[in-house]
């Protein structure tokens, strides 16, 4: 048909920026079982080159360990192969250069340009609501940096594009448990930090700041729900939501709230930012669903960044086996 030749920009995908970049900054060690013995020892085994060829993160998913290099702000993480896709990951420059983080501007390049102004150290998260452990927690108190894992997830934006991203972080379920929600709590509400001095986009009332997102507690406890503190083997770049962000890969990207400054447990469904600005367009659940169109555009297909054409969107972004039962008996046309 029209385009047989793979355009130059489509190749970068697994071949251009990321791999050299990626493989350079951390060594891959063999043997998942040996993690305890090897962690921090600095012993580098072969595998970099191989990983570079197969798509770095993909190679890791086979069971490698990422080693920290503190000077480069790299992170140590064990690869969670069971929950990782083996699709080629998107280029580092795409993952960190094409973002929606409206607090820094509405252009996809704005976050990469302006998020640098955000202070992420020190960082604390206010925990409140129906919890037995309310209070203000530092980042290190919330995240066990010795127990990070890498998960390669698909991310499907509500704007009908998608990427594959090697996240580093911890399961949200563990964090939820540590924060001791009371039995009456049914939802968890997240809030992005709001700092007008550091966020040049919040002067425009694109949304009612601060940005708010939420999950039903059973969704938050699903094993796929993840709190990322890094990606591509490095500390989370600010434009991607440093220092900690949610990643819920079966939902549209806007659910995966960035730069979390507050967590609140509630009995009632939290009012989320996009739902508030356009209730007919963005629901609370926002599960990826090709059968339910956004009122202004179709969700049946998506453009995987780096590919020329569009591919079919899969229900729950392909994570149905993990999450579909969360919505048993629910009319997903109504609860979009």
């Amino acid at each position: 048909m029209l385009i047989k030749r793979k355009p130059g920009w489509a190749l970068p995908h697994s071949a251009v920026t990321p791999e050299a970049h990626y493989a350079n900054r951390r060594q891959i060690m063999a043997g998942l079982g040996a993690s305890a013995a090897l962690a921090g020892s600095g012993l580098a085994l072969s595998g970099c080159g191989e990983a570079a060829e197969t798509g770095g993160a993909t190679g890791d998913a086979a069971g490698g360990i990422l080693r920290a290099d503190t000077q480069r702000r790299d992170l140590t993480a064990t690869a969670n192969a069971a929950l990782s896709t083996d699709e080629p990951v998107n280029a580092h420059e795409a993952v960190t250069g094409y973002n929606n983080f409206f607090e820094f501007g509405t252009d996809k390049g704005d976050p990469a340009r302006y998020a640098d102004a955000l202070t992420v150290d020190p960082w604390s998260v206010e925990v409140s609501g129906l919890t037995d452990a309310p209070g203000r927690y530092g980042l290190d108190e919330l995240i066990d940096f010795q127990a990070l894992e890498q998960r390669i997830y698909r991310l499907r934006c509500v704007e009908a594009w998608s990427m594959v991203i090697p996240w580093i972080g911890v399961p949200l379920a563990g964090l939820i448990d540590a924060l001791k929600p009371q039995s009456a709590a049914r939802y968890v509400r997240f809030e992005t930090v709001l700092r007008p001095d550091e966020m040049r986009g919040v002067g425009a009332r694109v949304l009612d700041w601060p940005y708010v997102e939420g999950l039903r507690l059973d969704e938050a406890r699903n094993e796929l729900a993840f709190i990322a503190v890094g990606l591509y083997g490095e500390v989370l770049p600010k434009q991607n939501g440093a220092p900690l962000r949610l990643v819920v890969p079966w939902k549209y990207g806007f659910k995966s709230i960035k730069s979390i400054a507050a967590i609140r447990f509630t009995e009632t469904m939290p009012m989320t930012s996009w739902h508030k600005v356009a209730p007919g367009e963005y629901g609370f659940y926002a599960n990826v669903n090709p059968e339910v169109s956004h009122p202004r555009w179709s969700q049946a297909r998506e453009r995987r960044i780096g590919e020329f054409g569009r591919r079919d969107t899969v229900k729950f972004n392909g994570y149905g086996p993990w999450v579909a039962d969360l919505y048993d008996g629910m009319d997903l046309t109504r609860w979009y």
């Binding site: 030749r5 355009p7 130059g8 920009w9 190749l11 420059e93 795409a94 250069g97 094409y98 996809k108 390049g109 594009w161 453009r303 960044i305 020329f308």
Partner: peptide, 16 residues
């Protein structure tokens, strides 16, 4: 430039 595989100014999502 993009179709020739050269650096270009179309960004990460050229169609959009």
């Amino acid at each position: 430039l993009a179709l020739a595989g050269e650096p270009h100014g179309l960004g990460i999502n050229p169609q959009q």
